[in-house]
């Protein structure tokens, strides 16, 4: 991934990136909220670029030298450096925020299914942006995954490690189907201290993480549906409930996969 190269940019690269930034502003003008530095330029990058790395280079390289803002103006987010090193916050802070997210969503729905759908929707937006960010922060340029197994492996290793600090437990195919897979996880991060009371039925707050998976796959060009289940393995010794993120890819994706397989 091209690192920010201060002082060694061509004038052309700067112009391209500032153009891309303006495009991103008009496209996303209505949105508030989290916008990773590279997203806007990424969408404006030339098609067929070798990988995410190249797309990021256009955005990241451009406003290279940290421009100091003119007095009274907001420092443009593209002028700020990407975080210098892996920042961390406490897990408690994150889980407490998640608690409130669940409580807030609970107040606005009347069924477990709707609650899970809401959590998944919030997770979707996280996943969409996480993909770009993981690629940008990876030490080496990552290839753009075009095959199903490739992107699923990416999700289960790179992405899971980046977000949750560990790989997901396993990735499995459903029977002989090309379109259905599931990712298993014994202890989703967000469920670390959650215990579901009986009147919540089969609620699994990890639907939020399922939403993240959905967002990532969609952003990578793999349209699909993701549902989160709990499989009760208490009959087997030593294992507990396992969370499963069941992924069903759309027909277009399957057809594309078949074409690419030759």
């Amino acid at each position: 991934m091209a690192r920010r190269e201060t002082g060694r940019l061509s004038w052309v690269a700067k112009k391209q990136a500032s153009g891309a930034h303006k495009r991103s502003q008009s496209v996303r003008g209505m949105e508030a909220g989290a916008l990773p530095a590279g997203v806007g330029a990424g969408s404006g990058a030339p098609a067929g670029s070798a990988g995410y790395g190249a797309a990021m280079a256009v955005a990241a390289a451009a406003p290279g030298a940290q421009a100091s803002p003119t007095p009274g103006s907001t420092l443009n987010i593209l002028d700020q450096p990407l975080a210098r090193q892996r920042g961390e916050v406490s897990l408690s802070a994150y889980l407490l925020l998640f608690c409130e997210l669940v409580a807030y969503s609970r107040n606005r729905v009347s069924s477990v299914v709707a609650l899970e759908a809401r959590l998944a929707a919030v997770g979707y937006r996280v996943g969409e942006r996480a993909l770009e960010y993981v690629c940008a922060k990876s030490g080496k340029p990552l290839p753009r995954e075009t095959r199903i197994l490739g992107i699923l492996n990416f999700v289960v290793t790179n992405l899971w490690r980046f977000l949750f600090g560990k790989n997901a437990d396993s990735l499995k195919k459903v029977g002989n189907s090309d379109a259905e897979f599931y990712i298993e996880e014994v202890e989703p991060l967000v469920n670390t201290f959650v215990s579901v009371p009986k009147d919540f039925g089969a609620l699994n707050c990890a639907a939020f993480q399922g939403g993240i998976v959905h967002g990532i796959l969609s952003a990578a060009g793999f349209e699909c549906e993701v549902t989160t289940y709990v499989r009760d393995d208490s009959s087997k010794p030593g294992s507990a409930e396992v969370t499963m993120y069941y992924i069903k890819f759309s027909n277009e994706v399957i057809q594309r996969e078949r074409r690419l397989a030759g």
């Binding site: 408690s92 889980l95 407490l96 998640f98 608690c99 997210l101 669940v102 409580a103 967000v190 670390t192 201290f193 959650v194 215990s195 579901v196 009371p197 919540f200 609620l203 707050c205």
Partner: peptide, 21 residues
């Protein structure tokens, strides 16, 4: 603090019913 306060499905002030806790 871990199994009650950080439990997303517990509302502070209610009797504790978390099986895990």
């Amino acid at each position: 603090v871990e199994y009650v306060v950080s439990n997303a499905l517990y509302t502070p002030g209610e009797p504790i019913q978390s099986a895990l806790f």
